[in-house]
């Protein structure tokens, strides 16, 4: 089924995962994931908790490196180059592949500094004021904060904080933005705003979003990957990719029984 979906993918792949296994210490967390993330599209990862969707997401910008004992096998390529090859620097990877987290995590600095920080450390040479304004505009939050750029990022509401974090991510001009359940801590109206924003952003960025919310996946994404977890002999759980296809196919006509059960709400 995976090869089927790959044939349908005519657009260029931004990221390509091939036979990826992730271990935490000696326990296998996710097994054998192979998929292509198409460029300038929104790809959603759905599945029950513990199915490894966030784990795979974190592999894409090597934030799994920060967890001690985490190990990735297989190949994840970005522009044809293996992200985990020797000599590839995680800092360089993260500078190209941005991330937005489950809970908004603005730095306890001014709104302006929240945006400027990443650009400055990564050697941005241009006009900082312009970059800040441009990024905040792209994240559809400029009008709300333009008069209080000096105020703390923490003074904003939860939804605004999350859009500030998106602005912060796009300020360093990544190619891909990874979003790990970006709306799970937000109210419905803020969620809607972030979803609208994602539609605008996909013209310039490739977006991968992990979500618990199937409605959200069906509303925003072009492609959907369904992950599931199965019990292992040792009593643990290991995640795997069940099905990956166009979002409409996954939700209306999935090929796998598990997928059908999940999207129709029978488990998960």
């Amino acid at each position: 089924m995976i090869s089927d979906s790959m044939n349908q993918t005519l657009t260029e792949a931004a990221l390509r995962a091939q036979n990826v296994f992730v271990y935490y210490g000696s326990t296998l967390a996710v097994r054998d994931v192979t998929l292509d993330i198409p460029k300038n599209k929104i790809t959603a990862f759905i599945g029950p908790s513990g199915c490894g969707k966030s784990t795979i997401l974190r592999c894409f910008n090597r934030t799994n490196d920060l967890i001690s004992g985490a190990r990735v096998e297989g190949k994840i390529t970005f522009h044809g180059r293996d992200l985990y090859a020797k000599g590839v620097d995680p800092v360089e990877v993260r500078r190209r592949i941005g991330m937005v987290f489950q809970k908004p995590n603005p730095f306890p600095k001014s709104i302006y500094e929240n945006i400027a920080f990443g650009a400055r450390i990564n050697g941005y040479q241009g006009n900082m004021d312009e970059l800040v304004e441009q990024s905040l505009r792209s994240a559809a939050i400029w009008d709300e904060v333009k008069d209080k750029l000096k105020e703390s990022g923490l003074s904003l509401s939860g939804g605004q904080q999350q859009r500030l974090c998106i602005a912060r991510a796009i300020a360093i001009e990544p190619e891909i933005i990874l979003m790990d359940e970006p709306c799970s801590a937000l109210d419905p109206i803020s969620t809607l705003k972030v979803e609208e924003l994602m539609q605008q952003l996909k013209e310039r960025y490739t977006i991968v979003i992990v979500t618990h919310n199937m409605q959200q996946a069906s509303r925003v994404s072009d492609k959907t990957a369904f992950f599931n977890a199965e019990a292992t002999d040792k009593g643990g759980k290991v995640g795997y990719l069940v099905e990956y296809d166009d979002t409409s196919t996954i939700f209306s006509n999935p090929k796998q029984e598990y997928t059908r059960d999940y999207v129709s709400g029978r488990f998960g």
Binding site: H79, R81, G123
Partner: peptide, 13 residues
């Protein structure tokens, strides 16, 4: 150059 992550950017770096 497929061996680098480079792409066009408004960043003059």
């Amino acid at each position: 150059n497929p061996q680098s992550f480079e792409r066009e950017s408004s960043w003059n770096i």
